[in-house]
Design a protein around this nucleic acid. Sequence first.
DNA 1: GAGATATTGAACTATTTAGTTCTTTATTGG
DNA 2: CCAATAAAGAACTAAATAGTTCAATATCTC
Lengths: 184, 184
Amino acid sequence: MGRPKNFSREEVLEKAMPVFWKQGFADTRLQELERTTGVNKSGLYTEFRDKEDLFVACLRHYLESQGKRGLLTKEPLGWKNVKNFLKNGPLNKGDQQGCFSVNSMREFAILPDEAYGVVTENRALLQRLLAMNIEAEKPKMAPSAIAEMVLSFFSGLCIERNLKSGKASSTRKIENFITALRSL
Amino acid sequence: MGRPKNFSREEVLEKAMPVFWKQGFADTRLQELERTTGVNKSGLYTEFRDKEDLFVACLRHYLESQGKRGLLTKEPLGWKNVKNFLKNGPLNKGDQQGCFSVNSMREFAILPDEAYGVVTENRALLQRLLAMNIEAEKPKMAPSAIAEMVLSFFSGLCIERNLKSGKASSTRKIENFITALRSL
DNA sequence: GAGATATTGAACTATTTAGTTCTTTATTGG
DNA sequence: CCAATAAAGAACTAAATAGTTCAATATCTC
């Protein structure tokens, strides 16, 4: 066998993701991806078909890694998980603010259809997981209806992370929101 | 005096806005703006300094026109206005889906600082108007705290308009959300 | 160490883009 | 109708960008 490559697909995704996350697809330059991943064009193009392919791979990678955190599957299911999802779902790590998936929704007009599919599928999953947690609390209102609201609120929190005001203001907001939901 | 121009600034903004709204700043080509406004480059560049200037002008124009609708100042102030704001604030007119301002938040990384200022100022205004309407209903919780939640929920609804699922699913969601808030 | 094989790096290309400039054309006032 | 004025149109420019190609280089197996 010939020379082994000295980067893994995983590594590249891990490094490229924050760039797409912060700047979106359209305004991320290939040059910047070379710099941040430390892999040059020919390397990137042997691993990924094109920029779109790399973007979608980053998106999938992000959603998988978020899924693995298991915020909504911790036993016992209930409001606590929902609150934790709202508090810690949106990340707060340097350039990685909010949710890559929510951010991407803004760019559907120019993203490959695949991206749309990946995002909506994940949202459907979140909706189900949220509903399961809410169900466990036996509210009067239909759990799926409450879950819908939570997901919209979550999307709002995520997109607001693009503001400088940051995480601080959201903690209190989340407490209050959960309080309101508990009455349903 | 020489030849009068046959387009008004207003007209141009009205036509350019939906393009920026749908595609964002980065992925809107000058060529497309020429086509949709019917004004060619030299016309656009005599009226606006550059693409950024045109974008910010569109953003201001949008916020002004939204402000004029007066959704949150109709007497009597109260939950009815808040509900109406959530229902009809996010537009549903062809390419103009959701809120141009919320959509723009995603692109702060590449937009002029001015855009950030315009958006945050407007959000502060909305926050105050929402609080006034909530105040009128004399809730136990601080009106500003409830207003914060409404604004986040609104942002979520707006960004979700980028999904095909559309307006239908949001009506019920808004009713339920207001129900929850009334208990606070 | 030799040969096979795959990666890497850099030079290259074709296209697209924002922005400019200059000529042509239309409209006005006197 | 003429001269002044300004808009419109088109050709042009310089820079950037995604994507390609190919020679040089590194590493593996035998």
